[in-house]
């Protein structure tokens, strides 16, 4: 008797879940933290575009969270039609689970990254600690806010950018980079689990002298709290961050949404999509749009993960796996 009722309850629940938005087509975009504002705008634009083109009402459901957590969700069965994550490794993990082919990154232009970004510093107005470049971060008394590279995609870009900087300095070597990055993390005061958490700590709670952040996240903070409180500093060298996107084959084939999901991602590459990306402070990959917004983005030397670290899988294994370089150089508690 009990079991029957229990199953009935589950079924009722499943029906509630299943019936939501059944009247029109819906897809789920599983994304990482700082893209909330971008996809809010983009989803509205795409819905309009699709209505005009195909006549269907399309609803795009959004889920945001730390990139790794989101990838885990998809692996666990979160029905994502498309994933738009912080770094390729997280989509690789989904591919490893068999939900999409291993060569997914070749399916769309620019390594499947319709927009790029880089890592910059956000400092208090007037830059009281005089932070101009990466080597200013290791000065004593500078307190840094950055998320935990073990859990945050953005934080891994931060870490790799610092590493690449040390490597590219005159006389740079693996050993020196290791030492330098270790010093940076000794100045880290709070290691939030996600990029958004770090931004909140720095901007809203007023803690720390410098936030290492996505460029788009830094500009967004400036927009939200006003340029009278914060400044952006672009270092002399940073990393080309490519947040990739992909259709999740297993899900779209089951749900019959491949066409829509594909069109959704392709629309990111259209001039409308590129404009929206630029307006939300992502660097567009389209040359024309990029030129139009060139004033917005400071020119600096950008290195890539593929060149310096031999791709994401390798970077992940060497630096961020359990017992990897980060675990070795991260000194408990830092230096106060």
């Amino acid at each position: 008797m009990k079991l029957k009722r229990f199953l009935a309850g589950l079924l009722a629940g499943a029906l509630v879940a299943g019936s939501a938005g059944a009247a029109d087509i819906s897809i789920l975009n599983v994304s990482y933290d700082p893209t909330r504002e971008l996809y809010q705008d983009f989803n509205a634009a795409f819905a309009k575009h699709w209505k005009a083109k195909a006549g269907d009402n399309v609803t795009i459901n959004q889920s945001h969270g730390g990139s790794g957590k989101q990838a885990r969700g998809v692996i666990e069965g979160l029905q994502a039609d498309v994933v738009t994550l912080a770094l390729a490794y997280d989509i690789d993990a989904i591919a490893d689970a068999g939900l999409l082919p291993a060569d997914w990154q070749k399916r769309l232009p620019h390594n499947s990254s319709p927009y790029t970004s880089t890592i910059v510093f956000l400092v208090r107005k007037g830059n009281p600690k005089g932070i101009k470049d990466w080597n200013d971060l290791v000065k004593p008394g500078v307190s840094i806010i950055t998320p935990n590279p073990k859990t945050s995609g953005g934080a891994r870009w931060n870490y790799l950018a610092a590493w690449a900087y040390a490597l590219e300095q005159p006389g740079g070597s693996e050993a020196k980079a290791r030492e330098f990055v270790g010093q940076v993390y000794r100045n880290v005061k709070i290691l939030d689990s996600g990029a958004r958490g770090s931004t909140t700590t720095f901007v809203e709670r007023g803690i720390g002298d410098v936030l290492i952040a996505w460029e788009n996240e830094a500009y967004l903070s400036l927009k939200e709290v006003g340029a009278d409180k914060l400044e952006i500093v672009t270092p002399s060298l940073s990393i080309l961050a490519e947040p990739p996107v992909a259709v999740v084959d297993k899900v779209v084939d089951k749900r019959g949404t491949r066409k829509l999901a594909q069109a959704y991602l392709e629309y990111l590459y259209s001039s409308d999509g590129q404009e929206l990306a630029a307006k939300n402070f992502y660097r567009p990959t389209d040359a024309q749009i990029a030129a139009k917004y060139s004033k917005q983005f400071v020119k600096t030397r950008l290195v890539t993960v593929d060149k310096v670290f031999g791709g994401w899988r390798n970077a992940q294994k060497v630096h961020f796996s359990d017992g990897g370089v980060f675990d070795q150089i991260y000194v408990p508690g830092g230096k106060r």
Partner: peptide, 10 residues
């Protein structure tokens, strides 16, 4: 989690 700062080891 909202108040801890969540620093590994600390």
């Amino acid at each position: 989690i909202f108040i801890a700062g969540n620093m590994p080891m600390v």
